[in-house]
Amino acid sequence: MEKYVDLLKNIQNSFNNLSKGQRLIAEFIINNYDKAAFMTAASLGETVNVSESTVVRFANTLGYNGYRELQKELQELVKNKLTTVQRLTMVNKYSSKENALKAVMEKDIENIGKTIHEMEYGAFQEAIDLILNAENVYILGLRSSSFLSGYLGFYLNFLIKRVTVIASGPNDVFEQLLKADSQDVIIGISYPRYSKRTLEALEFCKDEGCKIISITDSLISPASKYSDIALIAGSDMLSFVDSLVAPMSLINALIVSIAMERKDDIKSSFEDLESIWNKFNVYNINDKENNN
């Protein structure tokens, strides 16, 4: 794995010695290595507005025998991702805290834009149909993805029946999924560094005949191979954290779309909830006595 980290560091260290065109290639790869890994020399050159031969010379400058050899290492980098410690070494690309603030937020915006541009809307609608027609919906996301699964579960419970968020606790994930079968849907949320337990659970559910919807960062992520439908939302952030802004936005879109399908059925439920919330002061803003 260290050699793949060295690839990015090598690009950074060589930056000042590169030609103007090669610097454009270097910047693109550093910020979009997951995308660059599957681009031809010609398409990469077209994207950054340089010639294909410039891309090849760029690979040669870095010590590779050709672009294909460089591309192979980029693909290994995407496949394996970086360890937390290794990614921590990359934060020195930010020259200041102000630069980090701008760069991180711009990357979040880029991830959302990429998600919108590359989303397969047919798959998105198919995912909604599977969720609405399922006997039970299980939501599985561990470690950092647990925040996404909890959020999705919180709102889906208002919209449909029989939603279960699988969480780490006294019961292992397999015990919580023991009764899942072919009538059920599993929404698996998996982001780098891809929890092994999540992947094992998805494999188990696939063997049980469950329909699998994955929310993940690419079609080559380990979660995708178990999925009937893969919803892709980018999380790339060249630092020790991943950006979960785009997957959160995708989850919001999923919730809103399901609510649109169920709006006539859920209206009375929300009216009942409002009465309960008011009765028990769940939201206290209208309690004048306590606000004085």
Rank of each mutant, 00 (worst) to 15 (best):
V5E: 10
L8T: 12
F15I: 10
S19Y: 02
Q22A: 10
F28Y: 13
I30H: 11
I30W: 11
Y33G: 01
T40V: 08
A41E: 02
T47G: 00
S53E: 06
T54F: 01
V55P: 04
L70S: 08
K72Q: 02
E73C: 05
L74D: 02
K79W: 12
R87V: 05
Y94D: 12
Y94K: 00
K97S: 02
E98Q: 06
N99D: 15
L101N: 14
V104C: 12
E106F: 12
T115Q: 05
Q125Y: 03
A134T: 00
L140E: 15
S144T: 11
L152R: 07
N157F: 00
F158K: 10
K161N: 12
S168T: 10
D172L: 02
L178A: 11
G188I: 13
S190G: 13
P192R: 11
S195F: 04
T198Q: 15
L202Q: 07
C205V: 07
E208D: 01
I215D: 00
S221M: 08
S221K: 03
S221H: 05
A223I: 02
S224D: 15
A230M: 02
I232R: 07
F240I: 03
V241M: 06
L250P: 09
I251M: 05
I255L: 07
S257M: 00
M260P: 03
W277M: 14
N278E: 02
N278H: 07
I285L: 13
N291C: 03
N292P: 14
